[in-house]
């Protein structure tokens, strides 16, 4: 009986259970949901409104006409929600490790890669809900992509969420204490967000600094933003999709390695 449950049907049950637990925790943390919404809305309502008058945007794909700055910045804000959510999941992994709850997960009979991937999927599911809630509010602010964009956005959000979650997962394997998480804010979230195409088009950045342009070009977050931007208009940015998939594979692979007791970092450290 016990061994029967180790097959794929059992794995599906395990995946559902991990997503269910994440959903319950998310539902209990109303402030988390609110802050996840308020953060991009502040950028949209205040920052973007102020920037509209000083930043001119030329017509660049996927846009076929001039767009308001609020429209331009919306995909970046969707990615920002996922970025924060990915780091929040990382924080929750570190917290679970400190409190011991992580052990429940790690002593599951399913392979470590499967358990960690399930955890990642659970986090992505939550982030997608947050993004759609944000887009619903943005719709009333006249940010109205074509209806097909809302549908095409889903796979893009899954991919970008997986990439950002995988980065968070790898970070969680290297952070030993919750207190060190402030460093993640300063050295990961802010640089990733600002040094990307989320707030300004890359050609604009190139005009002011070639070095900053190069940094933005190498920043994986830029590709998550562009993947979302094109998807919102029913298009696929294949280069962005390829980069996001490759980065996801690399970071998820590294995180699984780090959590593997026979190879990685976590099992070799005491505590």
């Amino acid at each position: 009986m016990t061994t029967d449950r180790l097959g794929w049907s059992g794995r599906f049950v395990a995946l559902s259970g991990i997503v269910w637990r994440e959903a319950i925790r998310f539902a209990q943390q109303r402030e988390r949901f609110l802050s996840a919404l308020v953060r991009p809305l502040v950028w949209l309502f205040i920052f973007a409104a102020g920037f509209r008058s000083v930043l001119g945007l030329s017509i660049t794909p996927p846009y076929e006409t001039y767009v308001l700055y609020e429209v331009y910045v919306t995909p970046g804000l969707c990615a920002m929600i996922q970025l924060f959510n990915g780091m929040q999941s990382s924080l929750s992994m570190v917290y679970d490790r400190e409190t011991g709850a992580m052990r429940t997960l790690l002593v599951s009979p399913y392979p470590r890669w499967f358990v960690l991937s399930s955890k990642l999927i659970a986090g992505v599911a939550v982030s997608i809900l947050q993004v759609y809630a944000f887009l619903l509010i943005a719709w009333f602010w006249d940010i109205r992509p074509p209806p097909i964009g809302y549908l095409a956005l889903l796979p893009a959000l899954i991919l970008s969420g997986m990439m950002l979650g995988a980065i968070g997962l790898l970070l969680s394997s290297t952070i030993r204490q919750l207190e060190n998480f402030a460093g993640v804010m300063n050295f990961v979230i802010f640089p990733m967000f600002f040094a990307s195409s989320a707030l300004y088009p890359l050609w604009r950045i190139q005009e002011s600094s070639e070095l900053l342009y190069d940094i933005c070009w190498f920043n994986p977050f830029t590709y998550a933003v562009e993947l979302i931007r094109f998807a919102l208009y029913g298009q696929v940015n294949w280069m962005a999709a390829g980069v996001v998939i490759a980065i996801t594979a690399a970071f998820l692979g590294a995180a699984i390695y780090a959590y593997d007791p026979s190879k990685g970092l976590v099992g070799r450290k005491r505590g």
């Binding site: 449950r5 180790l6 097959g7 049907s9 059992g10 794995r11 049950v13 395990a14 559902s16 259970g17 991990i18 269910w20 637990r21 319950i24 925790r25 209990q28 429940t104 997960l105 599951s108 009979p109 399913y110 358990v115």
Partner: peptide
């Protein structure tokens, strides 16, 4: 943050 039953259900899921 969960009830006992919710914890048990979560653990059960982790065992398929």
């Amino acid at each position: 943050s969960l009830t006992i039953r919710q914890n048990l259900r979560y653990h059960a899921a982790l065992h398929g």
